[in-house]
Design a protein around this nucleic acid. Sequence first.
DNA 1: TTCGATCTCCGAAACGTTTCGGATAAATAT
DNA 2: ATATTTATCCGAAACGTTTCGGAGATCGAA
Lengths: 357, 357
Amino acid sequence: MLQRIVSRNVSEIVNQMAASIKDIARKLNISVSTVSYALNGGPRPVREEIREQVLATARDLGYRPNRVAKSMVTGRSNTIGIVPPEVGDDAFLSPYLHLALNGISNEAGRMHQDILLFTRYRETEHEEMLSIILDGRADGVIFIAPYFTAKTVELATALHLPCVTISGAPVEGVTSFSINNEGGMAKVLQHLFDIGHRRIGHIAGRLDMQDALLRLQGYRMFLHEKKLPYRDEFVVKGQFLIEGGRRAMTELMNLPLRPTAVTCANDEMAIGAVLAAYDMGLRVPQDVSIAGFDMSPSSAHIYPPLTTVRQPIGELGQMALRTVIDLIEGRDGPTETIFETDLIVRESTNHPTEELI
Amino acid sequence: MLQRIVSRNVSEIVNQMAASIKDIARKLNISVSTVSYALNGGPRPVREEIREQVLATARDLGYRPNRVAKSMVTGRSNTIGIVPPEVGDDAFLSPYLHLALNGISNEAGRMHQDILLFTRYRETEHEEMLSIILDGRADGVIFIAPYFTAKTVELATALHLPCVTISGAPVEGVTSFSINNEGGMAKVLQHLFDIGHRRIGHIAGRLDMQDALLRLQGYRMFLHEKKLPYRDEFVVKGQFLIEGGRRAMTELMNLPLRPTAVTCANDEMAIGAVLAAYDMGLRVPQDVSIAGFDMSPSSAHIYPPLTTVRQPIGELGQMALRTVIDLIEGRDGPTETIFETDLIVRESTNHPTEELI
DNA sequence: TTCGATCTCCGAAACGTTTCGGATAAATAT
DNA sequence: ATATTTATCCGAAACGTTTCGGAGATCGAA
């Protein structure tokens, strides 16, 4: 019974396929311009009687406006392009991208914009990639770090394509949204300092990436500020990966004079660090405190739950979308916005026990 | 110095803005059709000399083909629409979607397709949503469960829009890709059975969703097959959420006769179950074995690493994309494909100790 | 030489919209 | 009565492509 009803509805809607504005005009013996005015409610007025007829036959014919045709004449597509980070396969596995995309899409829904995801840039050079981006299907673009280079972005702006970047660090010359990496690092360190830690290590990320560099910078600045000695052997690179964190932590814990706490440039390395600690028979946080960065979903689920730094990436995405629309519509937005982070204190950090000090 | 070079390159490319095929024709005193042939290498031949001139001035003028215009005449956009699951905000936080999107985008890159993410359906009814989808910007659509309803899909197919679904369970009447939920459940249960468990509980998901239902079904079928008694109190609903899993586990562990192992319909509930066990002073897996479903990233990072079932969601996405392209190009694909799952044995399951039995 | 075939190229239509300049008729003002 | 405004509607251009029908020119063969 339900089946019957559904079927009837469907056939009602599909009696004619792909009706255009011309079909409506022909059926009503009026011009296409009148139909367009009636359908859009402007910009010219239309007699009420005709308007109703147009709307009725549009419904009868199952008319659906062709956005491609519309955007060719208006020059707008109501679509925002997104250039995701990373090249090659599995580009969509990054939690960073997930959060950014979520923020972007939330706001896009509200702003009546759709999202065009560029997948085809892999094959091409940056310049050719821009040809793909600039082919009229998107009104503006959001570059998500760390794929784009300065040149890509420079090209895009030079070609009058409204564009915006979301990245670990500010990008010169373009509208960029980023977070205060140094400040975030300072927050974790202050927390560790407050509960009594003085020998604090750092597992750094990939130093070819700005955010890793800035977090390391934050670490160094904090030590300097608090007049704590900077020990070179307390900084080990971990490549932003679990395995790297594991290796780095092992190295740190084999030092003659161990740090009592370790800060990591991201959660993945912190997870690796926890695993390494367990491997060596150390308890977290009783024997060593470990803190991450990013507040990835996993950070809440591991044992012990990770003290970490929340980056408001969703908000970044949201702001980026709103700003790119401002740019498209000729308004100007902020040129460089740096978001503050939140310290999330959980169970992987605690004061050092007497014998550690 | 570097800066200078980059700037020069950019200005070379941007000397003229938005050159069209007409501009090339005018500059060379030839017709637009000739330019088109030269640019595309067909379908009509062009004298080699002219071809080179066209290519050269195209480069000079910074010509970039307008895909919107092209798709209006060809009727193809080389873009696949994706309708994500869930309504409302934070639709992009689901790990399921991440994996599916990753598989889709990997394949899309290879097939030279871009992805149009629909964000605007929230505001509308399903029928109106289809107007948005069918507006010519996408050649085909992939519906990702569980948002679409039978009616949406029926409408889409009736309107001759090539479409495909990725979902927890097969969808009647459309090309669908899903996984063998019962089979996956049977695999975990067989594993638990093999290592000696006989009293096995189940934390079910949201029973308004097909996959939760099918996993529960798999649980019941397995018990029946092995002639194990079905105990009603061994099945508790957990809403697919951590908190739900926690509550459900507490309930199960307070039973006079406890299960020695618990299977969960997803990893999130399993994580909750682990937490509940810890809260009650139980060790995992020594005092109770816990298994999840989905192989979410977190499942590897919690302590102990979760035994779970891997769904090849990425492969689903990949196949879905390939198939939707087949459909677009008039070939026909499979109508219903069910992928098998893999059992991932980790440390959260072990044989029950003597005194538990 | 002439006829047909082959090469090249051009002009124009088409895709489905939006929107501007006018045209016609009715209503109002002088 | 005529002149002016107002209310409606139409026709056509435009957006940037692709592609079909055909026109000239060149070439080979009879």
